[in-house]
Design a protein around this nucleic acid. Structure first.
Lengths: 210, 210
DNA sequence: ATACAATCTTTACAATGTCAAGTTTTGCAC
DNA sequence: GTGCAAAACTTGACATTGTAAAGATTGTAT
């Protein structure tokens, strides 16, 4: 691992990891190509062999965020394939927890830092993979009668549910809520209130693991 | 206006305006203190008489975003003080339109660019002013029976409604939705579906003035 | 083995954020 | 008004950064 070969071997991923680390420790403002290169033990221009520019590294980090979210959603889908209510709640809660655990990574994935999302096909792919997965979940819930089906198709509904959860996570992560609402209990309460409005069945707070 | 005095006279606001212009034309990446200074016709270090650092200018721009949103919400409140349904829809729609009209300004106000929101008291003030205004609106709607009151207090409900609308605007503005959903009609449809879920009364699409 | 492509280093440059020191102006005490 | 301190700006400097160009090193296909 610490051998000093001319060729790094896995620089691209090393740079992504380094970038995420910087992000987590210093926030978005601390992220620079040169710093990531330093952290990976290569010269400051080495990244250009793998990323066209800084935005490309950011796009890779943002894509990684989507990938991690996808992992969590897929895990929820696997775990609760029998109970649609728990499935929907589990998925939402997994999503929320990712945002609260890794706020900087969440921000890069969803907010502002990446400038031209649509010119990074990799990012678009990962993003759409999540939409499709969510739409699957929504369709299971519609079939099971825990989501309204009248007047709204499943894609539109998926986007709306995503928007609702994403909006709350965003507000919290972006420090837009008054400090008084930022306690763990308070935040959980807000999310539960939101989740209750999403589904047609009553929700027990205990359904949210962890 | 174009007199060349040593003292600019209104540099602070000129810099904010210049910053917003740059933002609108070139996106967040194009925004720099020096460029704003150039645009305002002063030397590159002049901004430091009014802003501690770049983040402070960004905070001012973000605060201005909140101020403009507040204006629109207040206008909706004044216009529909008699009809709570139209009030809620008008406010939501005004908010949405700001985001769609000025995506870059919206992003700066809500997303990532500003690093330490809570160390900019001006920003916090403007933000909370909006929450309070929204809570007022919510309370009127609760009293009129068009919003559910059971199991949720008005502050929590205000945050949830805000989150829902903000989340959708965010997804659109951040290019997270598949291109197919980004047409004007499609977007309007998504928002209407969202708004329908918010209130207890049926919504006519025509209630959303353009 | 040789050539080619990928990977990485070195060097260089312009733009930027920010600081320090100096200059001009304003506003206010007298 | 006179004088003067504070505020508003300019100039000059420096470190950091993104990025391009040219060269060095290594892997790989033939």
């Amino acid at each position: 691992m610490s051998e000093k070969t001319y060729h790094h071997g896995d620089l691209k991923n090393a740079l992504i990891r380094a970038g995420i680390e910087i992000l987590t420790q210093e926030g978005i403002g601390g992220l620079s190509l040169r710093k990531a290169a330093r952290k990976a033990g290569v010269s400051h221009a080495a990244p250009y062999a793998h990323f066209a520019d800084k935005q490309a590294l950011i796009a890779a980090i943002a894509s990684d965020g989507h990938r991690r979210i996808h992992e969590r959603l897929a895990a929820a889908l696997a775990e609760h394939s029998d109970d649609p209510t728990r499935l929907l709640l589990g998925a939402a809660w997994a999503y929320i927890r990712f945002g609260l655990e890794f706020p900087s990574h969440y921000k890069v994935t969803f907010s502002g830092t990446l400038e031209n999302e649509h010119s990074h096909p990799e990012f678009v792919d990962y993003s759409q993979r999540n939409i499709r997965l969510l739409q699957d979940i929504v369709e299971q819930c519609r079939a099971a009668g825990i989501l309204q089906t009248e007047g709204i198709d499943s894609e539109n509904q998926a986007v709306n549910l995503w928007g609702q959860v994403h909006g709350l996570v965003s507000l919290v992560v972006q420090g837009q809520l008054p400090g008084r609402l930022l306690g763990d209990e308070s935040i959980k309460g807000i999310f539960i209130a939101g989740l209750r409005q999403m589904v047609l069945v009553p929700i027990d707070e205990k359904m949210l693991a962890e």
